[in-house]
Structure formats: C-alpha cells, structure tokens
Simulated scan of single mutants.
Amino acid sequence: MAASEIPWALIAPLIALYLILVISALVNCSKQEELNGPKWLWLLIIAGISFIGPISYFVIGKRRHM
C-alpha cells in the first residue's frame, strides 16, 4: 500500500489523540511545581519522543501527593 492510499479516515483519529495527549502533557507539566526531574527535561521528552514521551511523563514524571 502506497502512502497515497493510506485511509485518512483511520489515521486522522490517531493523530488527533496524539495531539491531545501531547498538549495535555505539556500543559500539565508546565503547571506542576514538583516533578521527578527537571521541568525543562520533561518538556523536551514530551515534545520530542513520540507517544512514549507524554505517556512516560504521566507514569513517571508527575509526583504523587499522598
């Protein structure tokens, strides 16, 4: 299947979900005062590492207040 034959009706929701995930992770990270590591590094990870960056931020980066 060539790139011109990609069914955009299937790809568009995945792109939208990815953008929502990245934007919500960036906004959340910028508002957090305490993180597991420097804030600038988490912002680079979120923006630069595809799906793994934002997901790893929500799993590892945020400090849990108990």
Results as ranks from 00 to 15, higher is better:
F58K: 12
V59G: 06
A16V: 12
R64P: 02
I6V: 13
V22M: 09
L10W: 14
L43S: 01
I11C: 12
Q32G: 02
M1C: 08
A47Y: 03
K39F: 08
V59T: 04
S30A: 13
L21N: 10
L21W: 00
K39S: 04
I60Q: 08
I45Y: 03
V27C: 01
L35V: 06
S4K: 06
G48A: 06
F51H: 07
K31H: 05
I6E: 11
I45Q: 02
A25W: 09
I55W: 04
A3K: 00
I49Q: 00
I6W: 03
W8E: 14
L41E: 00
P7V: 06
F58Y: 15
L21F: 05
S4N: 14
V27H: 04
K62F: 03
V27A: 11
E33D: 05
G37I: 00
W40E: 12
A25C: 01
W40A: 15
I20E: 05
S56Y: 09
A25Q: 10
N28E: 13
L41V: 08
G37M: 07
A2M: 02
P54C: 05
S50N: 14
Q32N: 08
I52D: 00
C29A: 15
L17T: 02
A47K: 04
E5F: 03
L26E: 10
A12I: 15
Q32M: 10
M66Y: 13
W8N: 12
L19G: 07
L35D: 01
L43Q: 11
L41T: 05
I23Y: 10
N36T: 01
P54V: 10
L26P: 01
Y18E: 13
L44A: 15
F51S: 03
S4P: 03
I23P: 00
L10M: 13
I45W: 08
I15A: 14
A25V: 04
L10N: 15
I60Y: 12
K62D: 00
R63I: 11
N36R: 14
G61T: 02
A3E: 02
N28Y: 09
I52K: 02
I45N: 01
N28C: 11
E5I: 03
P54S: 08
G48P: 00
I20Y: 10
A9Y: 11
I11D: 03
F51R: 01
S4D: 07
W8C: 12
E33N: 12
